[in-house]
Design a binder for these strands. Sequence first.
RNA 1: GCGGGCGUGGCGGAACUGGCAGACGCGCAGGAUUUAGGUUCCUGUUCUUCGGAGUGUGGGUUCGAGUCCCACCGCCCGCACCA
Length: 957
Amino acid sequence: MHDNGESTIDAGLPYRYTAALAGEIEQRWQDQWDVDGTFESPNPAGPLADPDRLAQLGEKLFVLDMFPYPSGAGLHVGHPLGYIGTDVYSRFKRMTGHNVLYSMGFDAFGLPAEQYAVQTGQHPAITTDANVANMRRQLRRLGLSHDRRRSISTTDPEYYRWTQWIFTQIFNSWYDSDLERARPIDELVAEFESGSRQVADGRSWSSLSEHERRNIVDGHRLAYVSEAPVNWCPGLGTVVANEEVTSDGRSDRGNFPVFKRNMRQWMMRITAYADRLIDDLDLLDWSDAIKTMQRNWIGRSHGARVNFASPAGDITVFTTRPDTLFGASFMVLAPEHPLVASLTSAEQSHAVEEYIRVAGLRSDIDRQDETREKSGVFTGSYATNPLTGDDIPVWIADYVLIGYGTGAIMAVPCGDQRDFDFARVFDLPIPAIQQPPAEWFEGHAIDPSLDTATWPEAFVGNAPYVNSSNASLSLNGVANVADGVATTNAWLEANGHGEATINYKLRDWLFSRQRYWGEPFPVVYDEHGSPHTLPDELLPVELPETDSFSPRTFDPDDEHSNPESPLDRLGDWVEVTLDLGDGPKAYRRDTNVMPQWAGSCWYEMRYLDPTNTEQFVHPEVEQYWMGPRTDLRPDHPGGVDLYVGGVEHAVLHLLYARFWHKVLFDLGHVSSKEPYARLFNQGYILANAFKDDRGIYVDAFNVEERDGAFYFDGEPVLREWGKMGKSLKNAVSPDEMYDTYGADTLRLYEMAMGPLDASRPWETRDVVGMFRFLQRLWRTMIDESTGGCLVNDDPADDETLRLLHRTIDVVRTEMDALRFNTAIAKLIELNNHVTKYVSSSGSIPREIAEPIVLMVAPLVPHVAEELWLRLGHDETITYVPFPHPNAALLVDDEVEMPVQIRGKVRARVMVPADADEALITSIVLAHPAVLAALEGADPATLKKVIVVPGRMVNLVP
RNA sequence: GCGGGCGUGGCGGAACUGGCAGACGCGCAGGAUUUAGGUUCCUGUUCUUCGGAGUGUGGGUUCGAGUCCCACCGCCCGCACCA
């Protein structure tokens, strides 16, 4: 272990910046900040209102970290990377005149907390509280400038009261697709009653029973109960959302198998918002990568729905290429398609049943293996191609998915590779309907021909149509797909065979979980089984106390097990008598809990007004912190000014939270239409992990390196990269860093090791570099043997002053752009210069020392506060204005210009900084070093002289 | 397969709209302090046969390319029979 110069104290330097001194300074200032409430930011209204203070501060800025989950293992040094970034930024912005809202709460409900509780036998409330307390301690020790009054936990009934309230708002709303927004459900009922809106099946509203009306209304709600295929995960004992299932058909948490099952569950009608969730991405300052992920997940595709007549009734397909209908030579249904049974002929029934049975056995990952040869079975029935009038065979095959589109396709083998492959395997006809260009044939080394038997693959793209006409429609001669699609769609609609439509991959959000540790639903069921939300005054519905919080889990592969919610067992809690307006009646509580994502769908707004007992957030407060910044740009959607977090929530939290926010916006509860205006994806801290020859991870801290190879206990081990964590046995705790160097050094190292958005490997041995920097910084201002301050009021020399102001200029720019690594490099350079100055003169001019302390303050706030104090100030450095560069000192009289000959630097010449091209040319061409470099070539006969003032000169002889 | 990103010293990484490649830090080497080691400080540190060469490879545009264009190789991420 390091001893950090403990002996240097013995050697007579009691005031050196050591880990011990750093620790003392840091904890003293952390206490002081708490006592003074240094980071408390004022609101314009509500319980935290302080209009006077607000008026003193400048423009508002809301900086947010992604809601952390309080893990039982405590933090490792990888966790706070983003937090340090937001803290440095927040502190910088306070010094540049902003009212910064910066806090942190805990997303403490959820599966891991419950699993941890089950493991330890402790109630999740107890373990969660302990974990939150430990995390608060570790974060406080980092010196994060959070407004502690605004810290929240999703598990606090005062918080989830509002989560439940928002649920009731969503439940009591419907989506008006004409107005393209959510509206209160009462307005829908009123429209039905007045007759301005018709019931879908044409019956009159007044003829319906109360129960029938109720079902119709419930079918419009944005939160609704439905019997639908869901993801059942026996290993977790709960259902999970589509977004929580990995591409290999397993659960995101725990990696258990997930099975598709029909079950009655709560759903959120996120699909109603599909278009706005895609379109409003354009308003967001997010990375293209994340936007693309959301677009892909929502999966909007434009096409047509087409009906094919069959003996079992119309088979509806979705296609993005209605223009290729003339080439549809067969149809394929998913094995699970509801019409399969009635389409199957007697002769084919055995084969079809067998195929369905085998397809059902196959796992999703198996079915998705593209390299597998196409399989399928003929049903024995034929459908009619509405354009050609031909009877075409109907097959079933597992390459058609029941969950996408209509679960049925028209197969156009000449224009779709999958259909082409299928047709080849089963020897089905492949009529050509486009004339591929000559290059396509050349590319495949075949002669141009419409005989598809010669084609190696389907042709996809723009090309003139052939064989594409009937009595009333002809595409022949049309040369591009867009025109073909438009013409065909018009024909389909005019002739009643289909219509243009938009299809989405996005499904509604499965919202209930059969667990204990989550928000209870504020819902009871009446004697008909209809759900009712509880009125506001009955919120929160508190999670009932119980010792049997453990959910029933099953053999992970037991597909036919059934979920059992822990709350189901609490009969006294479930059966309840309430007066919901019709007098006291018996109701049954909903025994599901909400998914972990519920609490994080709106938490940023509770930071704004955490103690408001009347509203989830005061409208004026929301408007102040999150309202649209139309002063910045006219289409600004509002929301958090800077949101920092990892990419892993691209289609989970970030999609759900946008959806909830839009509902709240539609209902008039918030002024912003998006929750997060700007998103910054931080990288991860990676660490070496080592595996022995059994493939088991070994303690990374006891691995020795010899000659480029690695050994554990004398045995060779293999090195690999991984995210830091307990499972890889490579986690470094921040506590170790606090003890060895102090929090300021840790902060500085994490910010200096690379750009914030890049992942980078942790190297404990590199940390010392930043510690040395702080030690040198301290030494330039504090006498290490006496503790005296070395600052004097003499003027600084010109060189140092110029370097200082160039540094200020760069550091301001870099910090504003979150490029802390380069800001730190400039500060080190400046300090290295000052160090030499101080070691020769024994003192430092105040006009140099103070700006340096101010510039490092956002990065290393504790040592900066301490130096600021020792420089004679008695106010916190937090709100002292960040230095401005003196423009006059940024320009030099003379600059060195490189002189290139044919692009290679051959000489350097000093020229006046404001010299124009002609002057530079004359100086350069007369300079002896240049003449020497020209090796006798005559300056007057140069082919080319390029002069970029202030940059370089390039000569071409 | 489709989409996106990235390849710079022994290592992490700098290099603004094309204009001095390798800032800053680690490590390493030498030196100072020290009984010694460690700590701390100072100097040096891309490679080199000392001519030069050099930003994954090959080509191109340009007076000039890490930066722009084309092809390829490698790594990472997302999606994946999405009709």
